[in-house]
């Protein structure tokens, strides 16, 4: 039987899309998160550290600046839980008060890097062209500076003096971490905006008379910021450990700031004779960094549909 049917090359327009689109990204992520024990554990730890940073007197009645020399190097006991260091400072009190510097540095460095990174990334991706090229090359230059080396250079160029205030000391560390940390956020944001920008709803918003600023604020940012939130959360932990590294090297936080990094640095010399001096600040530092990185991880999983 001969069949005369010609094969017809059909040029159909876009097929009717029958996509299964999730609920809003955030409500979906929340649905996922609330069943994760890891989320609650890390959130609990973070809350614990934040409260410790905000109101250290809730946890200890001691004075972190009170040094009792004759009690120097007392090992942990029921009256001095973490023992005392060489100068006779109470290590428990110092460790509690040390949270404030770490949390301040972590939170503000994250806020500042996110702010710079988001602005640069959005402008570069949204306006494109030569502006994009210039901004991304500048980003590359900052990205190329090795983190620790850059930090050491900056901090030793602008060292703290004896009469630097607490906020000047902390602010300087925040500043150096932000200067070195924003490029990764900027790149991430740019990529994310480039993904959102060609969507029809961005075109539609323009066709309905939205100004560039309104397009960015209402249509691009709400759809593009999820990856930045996740990475910022992980970065927060990284900034805390970077602060500790700089302080350990003696160029990050210094007197009058009390910091885990400084405590670790001081303790190193006496690791054989007074190991408790090293143990407790290190433990708190590790737990704080771990909490933020864990939270970042579970949030990333919750936002990433592929891991479901």
């Amino acid at each position: 039987m001969t069949d005369n049917v010609r094969t017809v090359v059909e040029t159909t327009e876009k097929e009717p899309a029958d996509k299964d689109v999730p609920r809003s990204l955030f409500s979906d992520a929340w649905r996922e998160l609330k069943h994760r024990p890891m989320f609650w554990i890390s959130l609990g730890m973070i809350l614990f550290f934040v409260v410790m940073a905000a109101v250290p007197s809730l946890f200890t009645r001691g004075d972190p600046t009170e040094a009792i020399l004759k009690l120097g190097s007392t090992p942990p006991s029921s009256s001095q839980w973490f023992g005392r260091d060489l100068q006779g400072y109470d290590i428990y009190t110092r460790t509690i008060y040390g949270a404030r510097a770490s949390i301040l540095v972590g939170v503000f460095a994250t806020l500042l890097t996110s702010a710079i990174g988001v602005v640069i990334g959005v402008i570069a991706a949204f306006y494109g062209g030569i502006l994009d090229t210039i901004m991304m090359r500048i980003t590359d230059i900052f990205f190329a500076i090795p983190f620790l080396l850059g930090g050491i250079l900056f901090m030793s160029s602008f060292p703290n003096t004896k009469d630097s205030t607490y906020f000047a000391v902390v602010g300087k560390v925040v500043l150096v971490l932000s200067i070195l940390g924003w490029p990764s956020i900027a790149r991430l944001m740019r990529g994310s905006v480039l993904q959102v920008k060609p969507n029809d709803y961005v075109q539609a918003a323009r066709a309905l008379g939205a100004s560039p600023w309104r397009v960015i604020r209402s249509h691009i940012l709400p759809n593009a910021w999820a990856p930045v939130i996740v990475v910022s959360m992980i970065n927060l932990g990284a900034f805390i450990s970077a602060e500790a590294s700089l302080s350990f090297l003696g160029i990050g936080l210094t007197y009058p700031a009390i910091s885990w990094g400084v405590a670790i640095s001081d303790a190193l010399t006496y690791i054989r004779t007074a190991p408790w001096m090293l143990l407790f600040p290190s433990l708190f530092l590790s737990l704080a960094v771990l909490a933020f990185i864990m939270l970042g991880d579970v949030i990333r999983d919750a936002f990433d549909p592929k891991t479901r």
Binding site: E13, K14, A17, K19, V21, S24, L25, F26, N199, D200, Y201, Q203, A204, A205, A207, L208, S218, H219, P222, N223
Partner: peptide
């Protein structure tokens, strides 16, 4: 004013 082909992608999902 303008209407687009695929109304799903023309509306902001968030």
């Amino acid at each position: 004013s303008m209407i687009f082909q695929d109304a799903l992608s023309s509306l902001n999902p968030v």
